[in-house]
Nucleic acid binder design. Structure first.
Length: 509
RNA sequence: GGCCCUGUAGCUCAAUGGCAGAGCAACUGACUCUUAAUCAGCAGGUUGAAGGUUCGAGUCCUUCCAGGGUCACCA
């Protein structure tokens, strides 16, 4: 689809031509910025504090995007915004000259990038501003950005005509970011979360690695993969659904503590907490069991909160969430007893458990395994109630093929997940390192899944071969980084913490 | 995939089946300390798309497209 200028864009194209005619280059190559808006204001206030009215003049050249303009005729007040805030330009005809003043008034628009030079001063209403003597256009905006006006009422910032259509905001994230500063804040928080995670792992002697995104076999999670094709090799490839099997190969290779932050891809439904591609963090540590992993994970989330907010109490969707202290730990069995009033150990096989669930008025999908039914019970009755951080331990074996069994308990494995704000945040276990047991689990799983179930992972023979060389006992963990960011940024949907969330292609024909 | 809601000017939103409107932005002008600047004037539309019912459809019906919610699905 080619671009058809709207009437507003047509008008700006005319201005563009007029600017060139007047000898103004609308897209120059060089910029002469001396101060950011924040630096300029700070410098002015510092000088004022030290010397009062006798303060020496500060001349500055600033750059930014025109966000508002109040044209008084011979004087124009304009706010420009740069990456550090806003500052007001005071453009007076007597200061810039007749011609430059007319061009500024008539040929510039909201959204244009400009450079302005002048002495800093305070206006009568007290705002630090630039008394502009020279200005230069840096980039003409041809399309009008949504206009957002702000007003301060009793100290509260009220925004008018905000650009708020969710779909348009995601499809044109650049415009969203340009006019909604709070959106930029979300992605600063995201960056802080990720840098805190990296520092935490580095401080604990973990090695960061990168493993293949394109894989000949997929595994490590129950999910449908995206498939692709290598032309020259004539080979089917999958986009990874987890990092697990590659990272644990590295333990065989003698790397004791390893982690990866990267993208996973799952060809499944899209929801407020699912995007087809999402950021995952997985780590594995030799000689740890899942108790060590629990302690470490708790520490990790607290560390992140400290780095982002400087405290362990955060606000999420109106709830106060306290990440401090030791998080409650309870078994899945006890949690389900408490919230669903079913003791699944009294129903030790799938048919009887399915009956018990249906009798209690619950939903039990046909053909679900015992473990899947338990997981379903948990998801329906327990998970939404886990607002404060909670660790749930001791998972059914048949939904945990990579976790080590609990001695003397054939039904359960050493696995935990932790929950905050009713969301699963992470999944961990004492990793299975017995190659023969692992092979058996894979084979059991093949039988358990219905034929043709596309969540069934192919058996990764190379992974079994690696394990046969000897894998140290280890504990491992995976956390959905986007969900952690949702929590830290107080956002209710994953799309608000992804710069370019997946959207259906729009038919524009 | 099922059900519910939404789609109107660049943005935010109105309009009992009866002339498609407002505010902001734009445009013309006034104003040399404004800050949602103010004031006067002027323009801006294939109402998501295609069909249908009707004398008449933004509004009712059908299909489709997109988004949101919810349920199902989701180790």
């Amino acid at each position: 689809m080619s671009w058809e200028p709207t009437p507003l864009e047509q008008k700006r194209l005319e201005k563009l031509a007029e600017l060139r005619q007047a000898g103004v280059e609308p897209y120059p190559l060089r910029v002469e910025r001396t101060h950011t808006s924040a630096d300029a204001i700070a410098a002015f206030e510092a000088a004022e504090a030290e010397h009062g009215a006798e303060a020496p003049e500060i001349k500055a050249t600033l750059t930014g995007r025109i966000m508002s303009s109040r044209d008084m005729g011979k004087t124009v007040f304009t706010h420009i915004e740069d990456g550090y805030g806003r500052i007001q330009l005071f453009v007076r005809r007597d200061d810039v000259g007749e011609e430059a003043h007319q061009i500024f008034r008539k040929l510039l628009d909201l959204g244009d990038f400009v450079q302005a030079t002048g002495v800093l001063f305070r206006t009568r209403t007290g705002e630090v501003s630039v008394r502009v003597t020279e200005w230069k256009l840096l980039a003409k905006a041809v399309s009008p950005l949504p206009v957002v006006k702000e007003q301060e009422v009793d100290g509260e910032l009220v925004r008018h005509n905000a650009f708020s259509d969710v779909e348009e905001r995601y499809r044109q994230r650049y415009a969203d970011l340009a006019v909604n500063p709070d959106v930029r804040e979300v992605f600063k928080i995201r960056a802080k979360v990720i840098s805190a995670l990296r520092r935490y792992f580095e401080d604990h002697d973990f090695l960061e690695v990168e493993t293949p995104v394109l894989q000949p076999l997929y595994g490590g999670a129950a999910a449908r993969p995206f498939t692709t094709h290598h032309n020259q090799l004539k080979q089917e490839l999958y986009l990874r659904i987890s990092f697990e099997l590659y990272l644990k190969r590295l333990l065989v290779g003698g790397i004791e503590r390893v982690y990866e932050i990267g993208r996973d891809f799952r060809n499944e439904g899209v929801s407020f907490k699912h995007n087809p591609e999402f950021t995952m963090l997985e780590f594995y540590a030799a000689y740890w069991d899942y108790h060590n992993v629990m302690d470490f994970t708790e520490g990790m989330v607290k560390y992140v909160a400290q780095h982002v907010w400087g405290k362990s109490e955060i606000s999420y969707q109106g709830e106060t969430i306290n990440l401090g202290g030791t998080w409650p730990r309870l078994t899945m069995r006890d949690a389900i007893k408490q919230f669903a009033e079913i003791d699944y150990m009294e129903h030790p096989d799938a048919p009887s458990l399915a009956n018990a669930i249906r009798e209690a008025g619950g939903h039990a999908p046909i053909g679900a395994s015992w473990g899947k039914l338990i997981d379903g019970l948990f998801g329906d009755h327990v998970e939404p109630n886990l607002i404060q951080p909670t660790i749930i331990t001791t998972y059914p074996r048949d939904i945990s093929p990579l976790a080590k069994a609990i001695p003397g308990d054939p039904k359960h494995v050493e696995r935990f997940e932790f929950f905050i704000a009713g969301m699963e945040m992470g999944n961990a276990f004492t990793e299975l390192n017995d190659p023969l047991d692992q092979q058996q689990r894979f084979e059991d799983l093949q039988k358990l899944f219905a034929k043709g179930d596309d969540e069934l992972n192919p058996i990764d023979e190379d992974y079994l071969r690696a394990m046969r060389y000897g894998m140290p006992p280890n504990g491992g963990f995976g956390v959905g980084v986007d969900r952690l960011v949702m929590l830290m940024a107080d956002k209710a949907t994953i799309r608000e913490v992804l710069l370019f969330p997946h959207l259906r292609e729009r038919d524009e024909g």
